[in-house]
């Protein structure tokens, strides 16, 4: 075991993993985390704690992760390259590990233009692939990025993201390969709706032998309503929502759209359970944590190990 995290254990035992997501509050109240955590307890193996997602200031990801541990859940600590240089990043990783955090997801981060401080100065001292290399080096070589020895190095289970739906399509699987080479142990994908394109992507990854080197968790986000689906189709960068999703939500009355959204999500999970090269699912129920128990139950993912 590289880190001894629960997520690593579930995946290395060949069990189908389930991860969830929780956004820290825009304030100091720890109860906001406790409340959301209730819904996820016993439902998922690990919970992604976002790092100032969409570039909006929120409670520090490591602090929210630590609060989650107090609730008896395992965090997957997200870190983006937008706001910190390599000194701050490594320092935060040391602190996170000392607080009991064992999983880390390495991301580029949404551009600050989308957030609530659009004219802030970006950092991007290193990119997401370089961040993966750095965390791997800290764990496996026991040194900082500069080669200096760490006393009691942090042993993280290293995650990365992959978006099969962004241009240039042909390059996406190669970018995945680079992240694996850099040291990613697991991958969580962008929310999947275009199953056809995703099947093709996974086939490429299988053919290149990548799925033998890394655990891929397929990302799903249940649609709450037709409006959300339309918004995501038009306005969310990197998102590919095909027309069939819109049509299915249009086909039911407004009150039943949420139910239909969850149904679509569960059907996708059923397919992922059988899909070669897929090791689990990442359920991103955005500000909809209370519906996660229903989704994992309906998708036949309970009980969790």
């Amino acid at each position: 075991m590289k880190s001894g995290s629960k997520l690593e254990k579930v995946l290395s035992e060949g069990k189908f993993a389930v991860t969830g997501e929780l956004g820290p509050p825009r304030g100091t109240n720890p109860d906001a985390i406790k409340e959301k955590a209730q819904y996820l307890k016993g439902m998922v193996d690990s919970v992604n704690i976002t790092d100032n997602q969409t570039a909006v200031v929120r409670m520090a990801s490591w602090a929210a992760s630590s609060l989650l541990i107090q609730e008896g859940l395992e965090p997957n600590y997200q870190m983006v390259c937008r706001d910190r240089n390599r000194i701050a990043m490594q320092s935060d990783i040391l602190g996170a590990y000392a607080l009991g955090i064992r999983n880390i997801l390495c991301l580029s981060g949404d551009h600050q233009l989308f957030g609530n401080h659009p004219k802030s100065k970006k950092v991007f001292d290193i990119d997401s692939t370089q961040l993966i290399s750095m965390v791997r080096k800290m764990r496996d070589e026991g040194t900082f990025q500069n080669g200096q020895e760490i006393t009691d190095p942090p042993k993280m289970f290293i995650g990365a993201a992959s978006n099969p739906f962004g241009q240039p399509y042909e390059f996406r699987v190669h970018r995945l390969a680079k992240k694996i080479e850099a040291g990613a142990d697991f991958i969580q994908t962008q929310c999947i709706y275009n199953m056809e394109r995703f099947r093709e992507f996974i086939k490429q990854a299988n053919d290149m032998g990548l799925t033998e080197k890394v655990y891929i968790l397929a990302g799903v986000t249940p649609m709450k309503a037709l409006g959300m689906a339309r918004y995501m189709q038009k306005n969310v960068p990197g998102m590919d929502v095909p027309d069939w999703v819109i049509k299915r939500l249009e086909g039911v009355e407004k009150k039943k759209q949420a139910e239909e959204g969850i149904k679509i999500c569960c059907e996708q999970i059923e397919e992922f359970k059988e899909m070669k090269g897929i090791a689990g699912v990442h359920v991103m129920a955005i500000e909809w944590e209370q519906r996660v128990p229903e989704i994992v139950e309906k998708a036949g993912l309970l009980p969790r190990p």
Partner: peptide
């Protein structure tokens, strides 16, 4: 974002 290893997800 000044990335060196390919396009972001966006």
């Amino acid at each position: 974002k000044g990335l060196f290893n390919g396009p972001c997800g966006g």
